[in-house]
């Protein structure tokens, strides 16, 4: 699993609790969503991951 995930990119967005939202599986990930202050990666934008399989995870901590 770790080997496989090494091909993927762990990209974690820290977000506060939100209401459930409609499914978007099977649709393109919006290109106009803005992400800033990338850390622990040389990437500066989501476009830097173009052509890769990306694993994104949204979670909050408390």
């Amino acid at each position: 699993m770790k080997q496989l995930l090494s091909f993927a990119v762990g990209l974690v967005a820290w977000l506060v609790i939100s209401a459930p939202s409609p499914a978007q599986v099977g649709t393109p990930f919006p290109r106009d969503l803005e992400f800033k202050d990338f850390a622990q990666t040389p990437a500066q934008s989501l476009e830097d991951f173009s052509g890769r399989l990306i694993l994104v995870e949204a979670f909050a901590f408390w």
Partner: peptide, 26 residues
């Protein structure tokens, strides 16, 4: 792991079909 901050939280949550925490998407 790499991490970043979403400027548009609702849009991001909608885009990955997130209904709670933690949620993930490929």
């Amino acid at each position: 792991y790499a991490y970043t901050y979403a400027a548009n939280m609702d849009g991001f949550m909608r885009a990955i079909d997130a209904g709670g925490y933690p949620s993930s998407a490929l």
